[in-house]
Write a protein that binds this DNA or RNA. Structure first.
Length: 993
RNA sequence: GCGCGAUUAGCUUAGUGGUAGAGCGCGUGCUUCACACGCACGAGGUCACAGGUUCGAACCCUGUAUCGCGCACCA
C-alpha cells in the first residue's frame, strides 16, 4: 500500500475496479440465494442509442439502489438490456445503406435488409452497454437481454396469440396516425401536438338547388377539398338547417363534370355553430372527426393523399403528384382563380406531429392491428391513487364514517352513488412522487385501443398467416399441415393456442374439429379465406409452403418492451413451466422501477397491464420517476440544439464518480434537473476532498482495519464524540433519504458531513492531537475515531461513488475485502448517549465561538496566515483541559492562547462574547477606539432587535397560553441569553470610554 | 378548456408551522506541513402578489399573476 497521490486520479482506478468487479462476478444475481430479493429491470435503452444525461441520472439512481441493497444483505438482480427501437434502427440502417451503397431497403429485399440490420446490431449494439459500464453500473451483464433475442421474440409471439385468441387483438380498417416520412402507422402516444402558424381559409360554395345561395366554409386544409364528400351543418343552426338534403358544388378538382362535383349537405350535431362559419367540409378519408361523420351519414370515402404525403390523381390533374403542403398553396391559387376564395386569415392551431420524424401526421385510413388493453381495472386499482370524495382527498378510515353519517339523504343518492364517487385503490404500488398516479389514472381511464402494427421490416413480425384456399386445398393441404404440426415439431401448447379462422369462423385447433371442418369444406370448390394465428414458427413455414402469406407488418416496439419485467426472466407463458422458474419466483415482482415520466404511458402503464394479464401480479412495487434533464436555460436536451453534453467526455474529464455525484446532488425528487457542468466539477472536487481526507489520515500511520473508537472510553475527546454523534445522525439521514427516494438528500447529507463536519471542523480541531507532546492515548483514540468515521462514510458513499470508495477502502486497509458487500451502515444508539449529546452541544458552542473569533480577526484586518495571541476567559473552565485548549488554539490559528480566570484586559481590547466565554484579541496599542465602539454598537443594535422580537412574542398573552411548553421554554431561554448578551456588550462599550 | 408543477440571494436551489440554509458566482485576505479540485472571512433574501386561518406562515387555505409540463381539442 503506497502513499496516496496528492489528487484523486479516477481513470486508472475506474478501469481497475470495474474489471475486478466483473472478474469476480460481483454483479451476478443468484436466484437460488436465501437472501431477500431486490430486483430492478433497466429501462432498456435503444440499441442505437448513445448515453445521454438522462441515462446518467436514471442509471445512477438504479445503481445506487442496487448497490445499497447489495450492502444491505439482499440478493440483487439488476437486469440490463436494450430494445430494438423499430423505427430508429431501421431508419439508421437505411441511411447508411443509402450513403454507402446508394440503395434503398426495397433494393435489397426484406430478408437481406434484415441481415444488414443484424450486422449493424452486432457491430454497434453494445455501444450504450459499454457506456453504462463506464458509468459504473452494477448490472448483471450475464443476463443482458435484447427485445429481438429469439427467446424474447417467442414471448412476444405468445402474447400476441393469446390476446388474439381472447379477441383483444383484432384487425380493422381505421383512421390511424400516419407518418408520411416513416410511412407507417403510429400509436396515439407517438403523436405530439404542436401549435403551428398557418391560415384559416374562407371560401364559398354554391348550393346547387338554389344557385343564388352561397355558403362560406372555413378550412385550414384546402388541399383536401377534392376528398370532400359532404358539407355538414348543425341541424339546430337556424341559418343552415333548411339546406340539409340539398347539395353544394365542390370547387375542386375543377376539371370534373358538374354532376361529379355535387356533394350533399348533411346535418350533424358535431358541428359547432360558433366556430368558423358553422359550415364544415367533410373529408372522411383524411380526418378522424370527418371519418366519424362520414360513417354516420354513409358518405363515400375519397382518398386523395398517398402514403408518402403526395397528392394522387383523384385530387385533380393540377394537384396530383404534389406534396401535401405544396398542394395547399396550389389549391388556394385554384380557388382564387375561380373567384371563390374569400380570405386567408393568419391562424394558429395545434397539429399532430410524428414524434420520430417531426413532420405533421396524416390521418389515414388503413388496415391495422389493434389491441384492446387487458387488465385495465386491476392496473388502475393497484396504484397509490388517493381516494377522493367529492373531489377532495379522503382518508381510508373516514370512508366508513362518511357512509355512516351520510346515508342516502334522499332516495336518489344511495350507497352506490357514494361509492361511485369514491375513487378507491388498493395502493399496492407506489409512485414517487405520487402525483404521477393521477396522470396515470387519467390516461388509463380514457384509453383508446392501441394500434400495434407498424409498416416496417425491423421488429417482431405479426404471427398471422392468411390467404385464400379452395375447399380441396383446405382438405388436402391445410389439414395436412396442421395435423403434421400437431403430431411433430409444434408443442401441444402452441398447437392448442393456434387460432384458425375459416371465412370468419373460428375453428378449434384440436384434431377432431379440424377433421370435421376440413371434411366439410373439402366438399365445396369455392375459395375460402383462411387466417391462422400461431406462435409456432415451424407451422408458419409450412403455411407459407401451402400458399398462405404472413402479415407483412411488425409490432410496435413497445409491444415487446411492455413484457420486459418477466420476458427477461425466462417467462414462457406456460403456467407449469413458469411455476418452476426460479428467476421469476425469486425476482418477480421486481422491487423498484426507475424511469422518466415521459414514458409513463408508453411503457410504465403498459407494463403494469401486461404484468397483471400474463403474470397475474404487478411487475414492480415502486416506480420512481426522475426529472427531465435540461440545460442551464431550462431547455430540454436535444441533438439539434447541441446542448446535450457527452457523458463520456465528462467522465474522461472529471471521473465517473464526479459525474454521478454532481448529477445526483442537483436532482431533487420530482423536479426537472438543470444541468450545469459546474455540478460535475463540484463532484470532482468532492471526490478530491474525500481523497485528501484519507490521505491526511494515511500520513498519520496505518489505519485500524475494523475500527472501534468506543473502546478508548474516557480518552475520546469531545471533538471525537461530536463527530461520532454527527456521523450517526448522517447515517440516519441517509437511510431515511433512501427510504423516501430523496436521492439528492442522500448526496447533500454526505457532502455536508464529509466536507463540512469532518474536513472543515473535525480534522482541523484534532490536528493538535497529533503534535508532539500530546497524550498518546488521546492521539490513538482520535485516530481510531477518524478510521471509524471513514469506515462508515465510505460505505455510505459507496452506492453513490463506487470507484473512489472501493479504492480508498483498499488503500486504507479496511478488512473484509470489497466494500461492495460491506455492511450498509446502521444507526447505533450508543452514539446518542448523554455524553455524546452533551459533547455535541459543547463542540457546537466551541465552533460557533471560533467562527465569531475569526470574524473579529478579519474585521481587524489580520491576514489569515498571521498568528496572533488570543486571551480566553472560559465560562466553564473545567472543560478546558490542555488538549481542548490546543484544539481551540489550532482552530483560531493562534500563536498563543492565554487562559484568564479573572478579567484583566488592556483597555479597549476587542472581545467577542460567545457561549464558551470571552475571546479577546489583544492588539497592544493598536486599538482603534472609534472602530471598536462602532463594532460594539452594531452588535448591540442587532441584539436589541432580536430581543424586541422575542419580547413581543413573550408578552403576547395568547402566546404563553397556547404555545407548546418546549417552544415557550425555548423563547424564554432565548430572551435570557439575549438580555445577558446585551448587558455584556454594553459593559464592553462602557469599558471603552 | 382540464389537470399537474414551479415562483426563496446575481444563478441553481434546500427548507411541512417556532430567529431564512447551501453550492456556484462575487468581494477581501491567505503558496497555514491532506487538499488552490484548497482555506478563512464577508456582502447579498419585504421567501411572486392579495386575502384568510393561527399566539406565530416561506410552509396550511382561497384567489391572482407569471413560467413550465401533460391531456383534450373546432374544421
Amino acid at each position: 500500500m503506497g502513499e496516496l497521490s496528492k489528487a484523486y486520479e479516477p481513470v486508472l482506478v475506474e478501469k481497475k475496479w470495474y474489471g475486478s468487479w466483473l472478474d469476480k462476478k460481483h454483479f451476478v444475481a443468484d436466484e437460488k440465494s436465501g437472501k431477500p430479493a431486490y430486483a430492478i429491470v433497466i429501462p432498456p435503452p435503444n440499441v442505437t442509442g448513445m448515453l445521454h444525461m438522462g441515462h446518467v441520472l436514471n442509471n445512477t439512481i438504479q445503481d445506487m439502489l442496487a448497490r445499497r441493497s447489495r450492502m444491505d444483505g439482499c440478493e440483487v438482480l439488476w437486469l440490463p438490456g436494450t430494445d430494438h427501437a423499430g423505427i430508429a434502427t431501421q431508419v439508421m440502417v437505411e441511411k447508411q445503406l443509402k450513403k454507402e451503397e446508394k440503395k434503398s431497403r426495397h433494393d435489397l429485399g426484406r430478408e437481406e435488409f434484415l441481415k444488414r440490420v443484424w450486422v449493424w446490431k452486432e457491430k454497434h449494439g453494445d455501444i450504450i452497454i459499454n457506456q453504462l459500464k463506464k458509468l459504473g453500473c452494477s448490472c448483471d451483464w450475464s443476463r443482458e437481454r435484447f427485445t429481438m433475442d429469439a427467446e424474447y421474440s417467442r414471448c412476444v409471439q405468445k402474447v400476441f396469440v393469446e390476446l388474439y385468441k381472447k379477441g383483444l387483438i383484432y384487425r380493422g380498417k381505421r383512421m390511424v396516425n400516419w407518418c408520411p416520412v416513416s410511412q407507417t402507422a403510429l400509436s396515439d402516444e407517438e403523436v405530439e401536438m404542436k401549435p403551428q402558424k398557418g391560415f384559416m381559409y374562407h371560401f364559398k360554395v354554391q348550393v346547387d338547388e338554389t344557385p343564388e345561395t352561397w355558403l362560406t366554409i372555413a378550412t385550414t386544409r384546402p388541399e383536401t377539398i377534392p376528398g370532400d364528400t359532404a358539407v355538414a351543418v348543425n341541424p339546430k343552426d337556424p341559418r343552415y338547417a333548411h339546406l340539409i338534403g340539398k347539395h353544394i358544388v365542390r370547387p375542386l378538382p375543377a376539371e370534373l363534370p358538374h354532376s361529379q362535383k355535387l356533394i350533399p349537405i348533411v346535418g350533424d350535431e358535431h358541428v359547432d355553430f360558433e366556430f368558423g362559419t358553422g359550415v364544415l367540409k367533410v373529408t372522411p378519408a383524411h380526418d378522424k372527426a370527418d371519418f366519424d361523420i362520414g360513417a354516420r351519414h354513409k358518405l363515400p370515402l375519397i382518398e386523395v393523399i398517398n402514403a408518402d404525403g403526395t397528392m394522387n390523381a383523384l385530387a385533380g390533374e393540377l394537384l396530383a403528384g404534389l406534396d401535401r403542403f405544396k398542394a395547399r398553396k396550389v389549391a388556394v391559387e385554384l380557388l382564387t382563380e375561380q373567384g371563390v376564395m374569400i380570405e386567408a386569415k393568419p391562424y394558429e392551431n395545434n397539429v399532430g406531429f410524428s414524434q420520430r420524424a417531426d413532420v405533421p401526421i396524416e390521418p389515414r385510413l388503413s388496415e391495422q392491428w389493434f389491441l384492446k388493453y387487458p387488465a385495465v381495472e386491476e392496473s388502475r386499482a393497484c396504484v397509490n391513487q388517493q381516494m377522493t370524495f367529492g373531489g377532495k382527498p379522503l382518508e381510508a378510515h373516514l370512508l366508513k364514517e362518511k357512509l355512516d353519517t351520510q346515508p342516502a339523504p334522499n332516495a336518489a343518492i344511495g350507497i352506490s352513488d357514494l361509492v361511485g364517487n369514491v375513487n378507491y385503490s388498493t395502493g399496492k404500488m407506489q409512485f414517487h412522487p405520487d402525483r404521477w398516479a393521477k396522470v396515470y389514472d387519467h390516461w388509463l381511464s380514457n384509453i383508446q385501443d392501441w394500434c400495434i402494427s407498424r409498416q416496417l421490416w425491423w421488429g417482431h413480425r405479426i404471427p398471422v398467416w392468411s390467404g385464400l384456399l379452395s375447399g380441396a386445398s383446405i382438405f388436402s393441404l391445410l389439414g395436412g399441415v396442421l395435423k403434421m404440426a400437431a403430431l411433430n415439431g409444434v408443442t401441444p401448447e402452441e398447437f392448442e393456442k393456434t387460432v384458425l379462422t375459416i371465412d370468419g369462423n373460428i375453428i378449434s385447433c384440436d384434431l377432431n374439429s379440424l377433421d370435421f371442418a376440413c371434411a366439410q369444406l373439402g366438399q365445396c370448390e369455392a375459395d375460402h379465406r383462411i387466417i391462422v394465428c400461431s406462435s409456432s414458427e415451424m407451422l408458419g413455414q409450412h403455411l407459407v409452403g401451402i400458399g398462405l402469406d404472413q402479415d407483412p407488418d411488425v409490432l410496435d416496439t413497445w409491444f415487446s418492451s411492455w413484457l420486459w419485467p418477466f420476458a427477461t426472466m425466462g417467462w414462457t407463458g406456460d403456467k407449469q413451466v413458469d411455476g418452476q422458474n426460479a428467476m421469476l419466483k425469486k425476482f418477480y415482482p421486481t422491487s423498484d422501477l426507475v424511469t422518466g415520466p415521459d414514458i409513463i404511458f408508453f411503457w410504465v402503464a403498459r407494463m403494469i397491464m401486461a404484468g397483471y394479464e400474463f403474470m397475474g401480479e404487478m411487475p414492480f412495487k415502486n416506480v420512481y420517476f426522475t426529472g427531465i434533464i435540461r440545460d442551464k436555460q431550462g431547455r430540454k436536451m436535444s441533438k439539434t440544439l447541441g446542448n446535450s453534453p457527452d457523458p463520456l467526455e465528462l467522465i474522461a474529464k472529471y471521473g465517473a464518480d464526479a459525474l454521478r455525484f454532481g448529477t445526483m446532488r442537483t436532482a431533487p425528487l420530482g423536479q426537472d434537473v438543470l444541468f450545469d457542468e459546474k455540478d460535475v466539477e463540484q463532484g470532482r472536487n468532492f471526490c478530491n476532498k474525500l481523497w485528501n481526507a484519507c490521505r491526511f489520515r494515511q500520513l498519520q500511520g496505518a489505519c485500524h482495519s475494523s475500527p472501534d473508537p468506543l473502546r478508548h472510553g474516557a480518552h475520546l475527546s469531545p471533538f471525537a464524540k461530536d463527530i461520532l454523534w454527527k456521523l450517526d445522525a448522517t447515517v440516519s439521514k441517509v437511510r431515511s433519504a433512501y427510504e423516501s427516494y430523496h436521492f439528492n438528500e442522500v448526496t447533500q447529507a454526505l457532502y455536508d458531513f464529509v466536507w463540512g463536519d469532518f474536513c472543515d471542523w473535525f480534522i482541523e480541531s484534532v490536528k493538535s492531537d497529533f503534535q508532539d507532546g500530546c497524550l498518546l492515548q488521546r492521539k490513538e483514540a482520535t485516530l481510531e475515531t477518524i478510521d471509524f468515521v471513514l469506515h462508515v462514510a465510505l460505505r455510505l458513499l459507496h452506492p453513490l461513488t463506487p470507484f473512489i470508495t472501493e479504492e480508498l477502502w483498499e488503500q486504507l486497509g479496511f478488512s473484509g475485502g470489497t466494500i461492495q458487500f460491506a455492511e450498509w451502515p446502521k444507526t447505533d444508539a450508543k452514539f446518542q448517549a448523554q455524553e455524546f449529546v452533551s459533547a455535541h452541544g459543547q463542540v457546537t458552542a466551541c465552533f460557533s465561538a471560533v467562527s465569531k473569533a475569526r470574524n473579529l480577526r478579519a474585521e481587524y484586518g489580520i491576514a489569515s496566515n498571521k498568528r496572533v495571541r488570543w486571551i480566553f476567559l472560559p465560562t466553564d473552565p473545567s472543560f478546558w483541559a490542555d488538549a481542548e485548549c490546543d484544539a481551540l488554539k489550532t482552530l483560531l490559528n493562534a500563536s498563543t492562547l492565554d487562559i484568564q480566570k479573572e478579567r484583566d484586559l488592556p483597555k479597549g481590547t476587542p472581545v467577542c462574547l460567545t457561549e464558551i466565554g470571552e475571546l479577546a484579541l489583544p492588539l497592544e496599542g493598536l486599538v482603534d477606539f472609534a472602530a471598536e465602539q462602532e463594532r460594539l454598537n452594531r452588535e448591540i443594535a442587532k441584539v436589541v432587535d432580536d430581543l424586541a422580537k422575542t419580547d413581543a412574542k413573550l408578552s403576547n398573552p395568547d402566546f404563553a397560553a397556547k404555545v407548546p411548553p418546549a417552544v415557550l421554554e425555548e423563547h424564554r431561554q432565548r430572551f435570557k441569553n439575549l438580555s445577558m448578551r446585551k448587558a455584556q456588550l454594553e459593559q464592553r462599550l462602557k469599558d471603552l470610554a
